[in-house]
């Protein structure tokens, strides 16, 4: 709600300055439109932000406006969003995709995402030890690979939830 309000405010302001109707969510110089959505919640829907740091399989990287178009696959970890008013939001994503388009709009789609404040360290540790024991007792390669993923994710969550 507050975000939407801010957006309208900004749109109204830019309207006043320029004196003609621009596309509604006015994207200023040095900002880009971010869509960050997960299966459980939409965090940003075409909101102007300054910078986004994302973890990906080809390494963590930061996206600034006018980033070269790219595709990437999310690795479990923390996405940091630098909002246009200087605030930082840290969101833990399980997995998903990142798309940087030619028009510099960014889409981060995750299967499951939660603000780091909602993470529970002890629950994550419990999940980690369970995953580790599963890894050690896994009978076939597939189960072992699944357990390895679980260990990796749980480790990341423990790290993020400190």
């Amino acid at each position: 709600m507050a975000l939407a309000f801010r957006n309208t405010l900004r749109a109204a302001r830019s309207l006043m300055v320029r004196g003609y109707a621009e596309a509604a969510p006015a994207i200023k110089e040095g900002e880009m439109a971010l869509t960050l959505a997960a299966g459980n919640k939409v965090f940003y829907n075409k909101v102007a932000v300054k910078q986004i740091d994302v973890p990906s399989f080809s390494g963590a990287f930061g996206i600034l406006p006018k980033h070269v178009p790219t595709l990437a696959v999310l690795k479990p970890g923390v996405v940091t969003v630098y909002e246009s008013d200087g605030k930082q939001a840290k969101i833990f994503v399980s997995s998903g995709t990142i798309t940087v388009n030619e028009d510099s709009s960014v889409q981060v789609l995750a299967e499951e995402a939660h603000p780091v404040e909602s993470l529970d360290r002890s629950a994550a540790q419990e999940a980690l030890s369970k995953a580790q024991s599963e890894y050690n007792s896994a009978g076939n390669e597939k189960a072992k690979a699944e357990a390895a993923i679980a260990v990796e994710v749980a480790e990341e969550i423990v790290k993020a939830a400190s």
Partner: peptide
């Protein structure tokens, strides 16, 4: 227009497409 996209290998594209299929179905 795929050439304008940076640093793509077939592994990334494969994973990307798998996930985007799931999200479109969702």
């Amino acid at each position: 227009k795929l050439t304008v996209y940076d640093s793509l290998d077939s592994d990334v594209i494969q994973s990307y497409m798998e996930f985007s299929l799931a999200s479109m179905l969702f």
